[in-house]
Design a protein around this nucleic acid. Sequence first.
RNA 1: GAGGACGUAGGCAAAUCGGUUAAGCCGCCAGCCCUUCAAGCUGAAAAUUGCGGGUUCGAAUCCCGUCGUCCUCGCCA
Length: 496
Amino acid sequence: MTTRVRFAPSPTGYLHIGAARAALFNYLYARNVGGKFLLRIEDTDLQRSTEESTRSILDGLKWLELEPEEEIVFQSANSEKHRQAALKLLAEGKAYRDFTPKEKPSDANIKETISERARQNQGEKSMRGNPYRDLSKEESDAKADAGELFAIRLKIAEMGRTSFEDAVFGLQERDYKEIEDLVLLRSDGHPLYNLAVVCDDIEMEITDVIRGQDHLTNTHKQILIYEALGVKPPRFAHLPLILAPGGKKLSKRIHGEIVSLTTYRDAGFLAAAFRNFLALLGWSAGEEKEIYTLDELVEKFSFEGIHHNNATFNFDANNPKHWTDDKALWMNAEYIRTMPLEDLLPFVKVELKSAKLWRDEYEDDDKAHFEQTIDLIRQRFFTLKDFSNQGRAFFSEDFDFDQAAIDKNLKKFPDLQTWLPELAERLETIEDFTHDNIEQVIKQFTEEKQTKLGVIMNGARALLTGLAVGPSMLAVFETLGKEKTIRRLRSQIAWN
RNA sequence: GAGGACGUAGGCAAAUCGGUUAAGCCGCCAGCCCUUCAAGCUGAAAAUUGCGGGUUCGAAUCCCGUCGUCCUCGCCA
């Protein structure tokens, strides 16, 4: 049987990194065993599902290059089938009508309300205590015919236990006593999650369900539904969760966009780098290696390498240098500076275009020079955004001066105001504007002025790039070229 | 509250599933590069493997207890 896995997000917000990792692992596993990776949008919560979220999920998957191999399934389109399944179980006596009036949802703090109620009910009421559970068929039919509203609940046996072998967590068992007769169909006829998931997974012929550990205990309920439906359950593999700093659950509401996948795309991450980072969050091939191509991840992937404990994803929105997980940042930088230049160029082009810094010569007459520039500046960049921000002075005359750089490297040495234009005169005499020739002129100039090389270099850096940091200045001079170098050295705008 | 999962340095994690001084990566710190730097190179600090017992010649690995964290318990998904 061909392996078929699915990623099944609900479109109730952007795609967060935990979900993205679940998608990744599904994809890696499918490809590892030569199976298929599918996508199902679980949009049955009409109130909360939005098209925008669906689009965000699709965008995110596309960015990570985790695209489904069959048409996307929208769960809401299968509602009728889900309903029929519930009715079938009712007819077979495996489910029953519950005429208990629907409780008003106390929306305030629903999670707390639920656990509080569970606490109260403990011991008092058996999970099989529903008064309508053992109503005769006639009585039940009569009430239904009389127009009384009812929900359909699965009728779970008094005695027994469910068990399954989780591919990550091992044998899982649960006594029926701990599982209540779950609602399959709401009194308004709307099918509920557990039913919908099981029916869709059956219909899609899913063989392996790979999802977050938050579903681990709910799996028992789903297995009960499989059994009632007379279908063999798929294999389950639950993934540890990704937590926020401090060990708290990642929350869209609390943590905001920092945990959204598209934030990383928009912040200039390379999909390959972020994917690599995500793969290493909760999984390890057990070797001393950090950088993996997609194909390598596919090849090495196995459930055995998945951790059992939750991983912390670090971020600090208030810290510019460590705004998101350090390792993710490092990995992105590592990719940017070590990947083949020709592979990086297309991404740089997109970035420069969006910043209106792109010029067609970069692919034509000026190609060699452009590539040399990129190769020079990429060495200390962390994201693609750096090419248009920190690298701006290499592509435009319209760049900002960092005040700290101006103060520290320029204004601190007032002589530079006359020296640098003077240096421009000297540089102008160089015919072959190359590294060694420039060096010779500048060294001599420095000696004449009896100052340190660093004063001249850093002053020039501030004037030419607007920054206090960057590549070696001799390389910057050469890369920027004679004309721009001279013009900027003579410019007085930074002094004001 | 009940059930479940888990606990190796600040973070990600390895340890052939009892066997010498508990890998590696990120981060942090220092030195070098003496033109900077969030780059590079080199190096250092940092874990009595949550804690307490037990089994054993020997335990991060097994057992018991304890503390802690997270998940689930809805006519949400």
